[in-house]
């Protein structure tokens, strides 16, 4: 079936109807979450009790809004902290990997490249527990040998950052390598013919060319870190990032406060996605 081949009206209508139904299915849960953030009730469900901003700005019990709910604000701060570190690490290592696979030929390169893809096919929860097991062994070893108690190696933010980084680095490598592949190396050579050192050539020619991919990789890494659940769940200590904090609340029962947080999350990630698309267009 292509547009050039006539179809009966019924088939065309049914097909279009199916596609519309699909998009309704995609949108429905998100729309519902967003709408009930404004319900003037203790529960995010019908009946509709009227419109309110209280779940955002409310200051009094039982309707304390997001902007006055300390634990949620702290969790957002924790998530941001983790996401910033993860994206810096992932983009840095990704850039280094992209140059390594693009510019050098060395024995074992093919195997190393395949190995680098593995984190994508390892379930997140398994990544989490393996890092948990290994770091505890190192921490216990340090204690046995030198009576050194390294708090950082116990479940906590450092492990969360490392755990998320362990698979996000693969994604940032792929994003940056894809653009480096398209780079015309004679530009770099021209710069060097004009007297630039290799480092200067890379800094002034190649890195600006890579900028859209670097920004894209940063945004993707930030969002993936912010939204990660499985790996974080196994490595989290006492400071819970937002997804974990929301999960704990959701288990106890939900109030429209969670809808309000969710709506803010949706707005935040769409803004970041738009920023990324804008930069991609320019590049």
């Amino acid at each position: 079936m292509t547009p050039s081949i006539p179809q009966s009206r019924f088939v065309t209508l049914a097909y279009t109807g199916y596609v519309i139904a699909f998009f309704v299915f995609l949108a429905l849960p998100l729309v519902v979450v967003a709408v009930f953030a404004f319900n003037d009730s203790q529960f995010p469900s019908l009946p509709w009790e009227g419109f309110t901003w209280n779940w955002f700005f409310g200051t009094e019990r039982p309707m304390i809004g997001v902007f006055h709910e300390r634990p949620i604000l702290r969790a957002i701060g924790t998530s941001t902290f983790v996401a910033v570190f993860v994206s810096i690490l992932a983009v840095g290592v990704g850039l280094s990997n992209a140059f390594l696979f693009n510019r050098y030929r060395f024995p074992g390169q093919g195997i190393l490249y395949i190995f680098m893809l593995f984190p994508l096919v390892i379930p997140g929860i398994v990544l989490g527990i393996s890092i948990l097991v290994f770091s505890s062994r190192v921490a216990n070893g340090l204690w046995d040998v030198a009576e050194w108690d390294v708090e950082a190696l116990r479940p906590g933010l450092l492990l969360v950052i490392l755990g998320q980084f362990s698979f996000i680095a693969t994604i940032s490598t792929l994003v940056i390598a894809a653009r480096l592949q398209k780079f015309d190396r004679s530009l770099e050579e021209a710069a060097m013919n004009l007297g630039a050192s290799r480092i200067t050539a890379v800094r002034t020619i190649t890195l600006p060319y890579l900028a859209p991919a670097l920004i894209g990789a940063t945004v993707v890494a930030f969002l993936m870190s912010f939204e990660n659940f499985n790996t974080t769940l196994m490595l989290v200590g006492s400071d819970a990032p937002l997804t974990i904090a929301m999960f704990d609340r959701l288990k106890e029962g939900s109030t429209p406060l969670l809808n309000a947080v969710s709506l803010l999350l949706m707005l935040g990630s769409s803004c970041l996605a738009l920023v990324m698309i804008a930069f991609q267009r320019r590049g």
């Binding site: 998009f23 995609l26 949108a27 429905l28 849960p29 998100l30 519902v32 979450v33 009930f36 995010p44 469900s45 969002l223 912010f226 939204e227 659940f229 997804t243 929301m246 999960f247 959701l250 939900s254 969670l258 809808n259 969710s262 999350l265 949706m266 990630s269 769409s270 970041l272 996605a273």
Partner: peptide
């Protein structure tokens, strides 16, 4: 449009289905 829902945390999507 297909990509949009996936910029949102899985937790939010699951929460949406719970409400429905």
């Amino acid at each position: 449009l297909c990509l949009v829902p996936f910029w949102v945390s899985e937790l939010v999507r699951t929460f949406g289905w719970m409400i429905l």
